[in-house]
Nucleic acid binder design. Structure first.
Lengths: 238, 238
DNA sequence: ATCTCTTGATAGTAATACTATCAGTCTTGC
DNA sequence: GCAAGACTGATAGTATTACTATCAAGAGAT
């Protein structure tokens, strides 16, 4: 499988490596689709088992519980995103341009046209992006975050933030809040996208009468993120 | 009760008004403490009932389920915050100063010294603030958000955002993203506070060796928010 | 041909999220 | 002071969820 080579996951994330068997891969692939479909709290291993014609107990052999499955797929997404970022900024030298790529990536813009076909065939990136928007915060907003963190479950997210923070410092070496700026822009991208779709009055991007619901509003969201990021990096007020 | 006058809640939020009886008030007050203590998913009406020496069924007479209790206390917090905002900016004319008040309020800075003693005695605002940071997003990140939204359950949050957006427009009448800017700054304040405590490597505010864990880092977080907000409002790059 | 690894199949448990019922108690109106 | 209504306590019960345990069958490797 292509994505096995691409993304090697932390072993603490699972009981048995889901990429090591056909069943494991189906659990992850269909798990993503089911979660995107009915949401994290409504998903159960029972429903997932039925969907892929296996048994609950078999899924438990791969993942301790559904929270771990969520952490797994979200971690996979962050690793994928970091890979995309490295790949896409490979031959760019201008850090400003790199940051613009970051913003587009966060909104999953132009992703399919960048040669990630093999991955897209494996896992449904669009569905996964939706999960990250709606459910990712539930991966860390728990009581056992300290323990989970000790097991490095959030390392992919931290790595992505570090990398973005690095680009920020390339662009503006004296910027004093690089890490917070990086995590902020990621989170802002996601819940503004969520608000845009679900509580549009909290945003300025709601669909206008005559337009494709997503494309135009996504464009406005991108402009907002661009404005936020670069205004903060170009000011002298700290 | 003082806070009954202060904050009148949407009737869709409960089955029976918890402010109308001693039991109802204990459910809310102790519910907040329990939730702050063990977290939303670990809390059950059983545990809460034991804690206040009543029965599960009695709690169900007030709230449909624990999710509704969460939505209720979070809504209460937003209304309280908006009230504080109005109260504290009452005699301020400079919109910049108003925005600075907003930021302090979001971090619950100097709150006890502003004459809200009666409320603080009723509900534990600090515990509630902790709940809002850790659990508030779970109030809207659900499948039934559309239905909940139709019932106006998120109106207090929207009202607060509107009010902040209004101040933003006072400060900078031509700013094109007032609502998104308002919701962003609220959310950023909260999860940066969360990251600071739980995943400090995602921020730039982690505790230094020799300092009170909260006060100094909170100061840095405030500076960051200040920087973010005003750099975006003072730029001409849109 | 056997050994191991994996899955299927069935069962079962503890906890959770409710719902129903009924008997006291307390209040309020008269 | 008494009847009606509102609220709570107490007990019971159900459906679903989140697991754990066990064993047999099949597939692949040696």
């Amino acid at each position: 499988m292509e994505y096995t080579v691409l993304v090697r996951m932390n072993e603490k994330l699972f009981l048995r490596d889901p990429e090591s068997s056909e069943l494991g891969r189906r659990i992850v692939r269909q798990g993503i689709l089911l979660m995107a479909d009915i949401g994290f709290e409504e998903m159960t291993f029972r429903k997932l088992a039925d969907r892929i014609s296996t048994k609950e107990a078999s899924i438990y052999r791969y993942f301790e519980n559904k929270h771990r499955l969520l952490v797994y797929v979200v971690a996979w997404y962050w690793q994928w995103l970091e890979y995309q970022l490295v790949f896409q900024t490979n031959n760019i030298s201008d850090p400003r341009e790199k940051l613009e790529r970051v913003l587009k990536l966060l909104l999953l813009k132009d992703v399919s046209s960048f040669g990630s076909q093999t991955i897209t065939d494996e896992l449904d990136i669009v569905a996964l992006h939706g999960i990250v928007i709606r459910e990712a915060s539930k991966a860390y907003l728990t009581r056992h975050i300290t323990e989970d963190n000790r097991q490095q479950l959030f390392k992919p997210y931290k790595d992505l933030c570090s990398r973005i923070a690095g680009i920020i410092l390339e662009y503006r070496p004296d910027y004093p809040f690089a890490r917070s700026r990086a995590s902020s822009i990621i989170e802002t991208a996601h819940y503004q996208a969520f608000f845009m779709q679900n509580l549009p009055s909290l945003t300025d991007f709601g669909s206008q009468p005559n337009e494709t619901p997503t494309s135009e509003s996504n464009e406005r969201l991108l402009r907002f993120l661009h404005h936020l990021l670069f205004s903060s990096l170009e000011t002298d007020r700290f």
